[in-house]
Design a protein around this nucleic acid. Structure first.
Lengths: 119, 119
DNA sequence: CGGCATCCTTGATGATACTG
DNA sequence: CAGTATCATCAAGGATGCCG
């Protein structure tokens, strides 16, 4: 661990992952490989086109995802993770694992609280 | 990697780390061990008392940090990472490392862009 | 199909002042 | 010292409609 918090680069990674839908977008692309815009949208109930577009553009800007437009009618746009983007996978995995444990941790805690209530 | 993005727990970890100051607070506590409120504040130029209090309370709520109040005048409150909170360390470290590489990656990219401009 | 433009709501953060 | 309270600001996210 870096001994000078001022030089912390955690924010940089955080900045990439933050966004209500970014992690899930990345997971979909990691699992399915290349996906079309509409396909991606179909897998994410609740997301609006605007948000999906925006988050994808931001990820593209950071070279995490690649956007390929096929000049045809109707339009076809495919998204995929870049080689560089794959370097995020270990972090996503670590966070997922930690998150799973944390969910269990919270449930135990709530159980203890409820027990306390009963007394 | 979990094959069902719907079951993704990345957000849970993300939720803990997100907050303009949380990562840096955690880094300070990880490095220095126990710290007083004012000491923490002194190490983070720019943070307001309100924000520091709020973020610390949120971290406390999740059992990531421990808050110990000494009933005396003037008040003395010490913060430290919990055993549980330490389980976040690998993630912070991974993000820091990735962030450092990403910074380099972006600089290279900008250099290429500037080169292009020149032509 | 895959967007973009607009308008709007809300939560996160900040500035400032006051207090046990 | 370590907060709380109040007010102000601002960007993220959402709803909706139009377009090549």
């Amino acid at each position: 661990m870096e001994k000078k918090p001022e030089l912390c680069r955690v924010e940089d990674a955080l900045g990439i992952l933050v966004g209500k839908w970014k992690p899930i977008i990345l997971l979909h692309l990691l699992i399915n490989g290349t996906m079309r815009f509409s396909e991606l949208k179909r897998h994410m109930p609740g997301i609006t086109q605007k948000m999906l577009t925006k988050q994808l553009r931001e990820l593209e800007e950071e070279d995490i995802v690649q956007r390929v437009v096929y000049p045809q009618v109707p339009p076809k746009v495919e998204y995929s993770i870049t080689e560089y983007g794959r370097s995020l996978e270990p972090i996503l995995e670590a966070m997922h694992e930690w998150g799973s444990k944390h969910t269990a941790h919270k449930e135990e805690k709530e159980k203890r609280m409820a027990q306390k209530e009963a007394n």
